[in-house]
Computed example of a mutant assay.
Amino acid sequence: MTTRPVDVEAVFRAEYGRAVAVLVRFLGDIDLAEEAVQDAFTTAVLRWPETGVPPSPAGWIITTARNRAVDRLRREASRDARHAEAALLSTPDAPAEEGPVRDDRLRLIFTCCHPALAPQAQVALTLRLLGGLTTPQIARAFLVPEPTMAQRLVRAKAKIRDARIPYRVPRDADLPDRLGGVLAVVYLIFNEGYGGTPELCAEAVRLGRLLAELMPDEPEVIGLRALMLLVDSRRGARLDDRGGLVPLPEQDRDRWDGELIAEGQSLVRRCLRQNRPGPYQIQAAVQAVHSDAPSADATDWGQIRQLYDQLMTLAPSPVVALNRAVAVAETDGPGPALGLVDALDLDGYHVFHAVRADLLRRLGRDAEAVLAYEAAVARAENPAERAYLERRRRELAHG
């Protein structure tokens, strides 16, 4: 029996984070856990084309990785204590550590979001370990150069090692202080998945549900879940039958998932009743306004602008300012919006150039718009987005 390499890739995308999380719980050493899981997948690439994918691919990966880790500890053991540690790890019924967080992947997020690490380091490290994201993918999510992100990851691991920060489940009292990093991790995993990796998107939604069960009274947890559900409701309309990107204004709203919209809007109303606004709740409210509109022309852009004004007060950032400028273009016109966009330092972000291109096109400055589209194409990583931007550039250049 044979299998294609893509089968291993699919298992990697779906199960890498779970495997690392399980190994970290048993080993207490994230580097060793990650290396063991990578070794297991390397073995799968060599064996599965001949033997076929096992009935439980995730179980096979975890068992193989655990055996590799035990073997390595035994090889490197120089004292009886290391032998005893390896023997303990090889015991199949070792008691699980108890704590408020029972899901292995959610446990890993909470343990990595340790307050001793800078917030961006918490998020970047967890994305690397849990999502299996590459350093370039994480750098793109943070809008920083790849070498900068690589250095952050190295420093984060070194700080954990040098400070002897334990990998253990946080207590109930520790959860609120780590929540900000956890929410950021889940949302970035969702965004990466929404760009073209459905397994990551589904995993983020699952983690959001578990977070809501763990901390049901935290409005930002509710807000994040609402935000993901409302964005995910449009998945079926985001691509056309040929795999081409369909922007929000052009989407067939009959293809939006009504059940997800209803659930997301219900969660937004629940947030409003609590009256403790936060960034994820406001972003969810923006998506709720979009989902309320029966057509693109019926969108209440005034309300969206007000929400972005509030978000700029609570959590200002260049990306938020860019989104606000899009709303300004709909309420005040492309001229005032372009002035806001040109004041932003987002040259490495393809959406920045795409927004500029559209505003310049609407102002009749076609030659400048073509150059802006070229800049957006050069920076876009997602194939569907890149193809869409290239098509818009060609239409404008030859129009």
Rank of each mutant, 00 (worst) to 15 (best):
R128D: 06
R128M: 11
R128A: 13
L129R: 14
L129G: 09
L130N: 07
L130Q: 08
G131W: 01
G131K: 05
L133I: 07
L133K: 03
L133V: 07
L133D: 00
T134R: 15
P136R: 04
Q137R: 14
Q137M: 12
I138W: 00
A139N: 02
R140N: 09
R140Q: 11
A141V: 02
A141Y: 02
A141K: 03
F142G: 01
F142N: 02
L143T: 12
L143D: 12
P145L: 01
P145E: 03
P147T: 05
P147W: 05
P147C: 08
T148Y: 14
T148F: 15
T148A: 11
M149C: 09
A150E: 06
A150I: 06
Q151R: 13
R152T: 11
L153W: 05
R155A: 12
A156E: 00
A156Q: 02
A156D: 01
K157P: 01
A158K: 13
K159L: 13
K159M: 11
I160E: 03
I160D: 00
R161E: 13
R161M: 10
R161Q: 12
D162V: 14
D162H: 14
D162Y: 13
A163R: 15
A163F: 15
R164K: 15
R164H: 14
R164Q: 15
P166W: 04
P166Q: 06
P166R: 03
P166N: 01
Y167Q: 06
V169D: 08
P170E: 02
